[in-house]
Design a protein around this nucleic acid. Sequence first.
DNA 1: CTTTTTCCCTGGACGC
DNA 2: TGCGTCCAGGGAAAAA
Length: 270
Amino acid sequence: MPELPEVETVRSSLDPVLRGRTFARVEIHDERLTRPFAPEAVARQLEGARVESVERRGKYLLFRFDGGRTLLVHLRMTGSFHSRANDPYARATVTLDDGTNLVYRDVRRFGTWLVVEPHEVAPYLEARLGLEPLERGFGPAALTARLAGRRAPVKAALLDQRTVAGMGNIYADEALWRARIHPLRPARELAADEVRRLHRGVRRALEVGLARQGATLRDYAQPDGRRGSMQLEFRVYGREGEPCPRCGTPIEKTRTAGRGTWYCPTCQRL
DNA sequence: CTTTTTCCCTGGACGC
DNA sequence: TGCGTCCAGGGAAAAA
């Protein structure tokens, strides 16, 4: 499930390949992808557009074209890019002006493609996303402000993209373990030093994920087919019953905000 | 306003 | 082998 490190890895693979290339032909095979807009209309908007850069904000990929028009791609659960032929799960195919193909694959069809005009890009993203956790503006004070007054479990608050852009289920659990904070703690009850630990935990977990080029569990892969190795670094995620790497206590599993949640009952006290 | 629940999707794992 | 059930979960939308 692509979260910030996975999406950033995809971005860094695509950017050098697509920069300066033109979308010569665009075929969208699944009407769900562009809903509520007609696939043909979206394809037509994209044909002839020249890529200025591929950027990322939260879990969104931004294909910026000359003039500022932007394609926002969200991979959701199983979206990925590759260039292989004959993929039964191909939902869109872009032929570039150098003749190569860029295939968008999405088994579960949760992913979305949205074309937005230049002046709409920032408002669309700012309405949905909080700070970029790896950028300068994201400090302990900013995190404190985002958690203040929220009685929801801190894990639920972390999954809210307006709290920390790009966090997902895996990195939220890993960050909370690093911070030694129980996922069900009400967000507003965290003490100042706990928020500082959480801030560090968020950054560390994401940085390790980036260094490992993401986690490949089921579907995620880079455009060239390489897999991430972050799954080898998990401290708690998916490790129910296995010993906590810090204290040896068996990892427990619960549910938060409808998501599987793994934690160490000794290191992360309620 | 905030928080919780439901829904969308499919393949894989599992029990019988 | 085959069938039914559950699970994975990001985010929009509805419900509380």
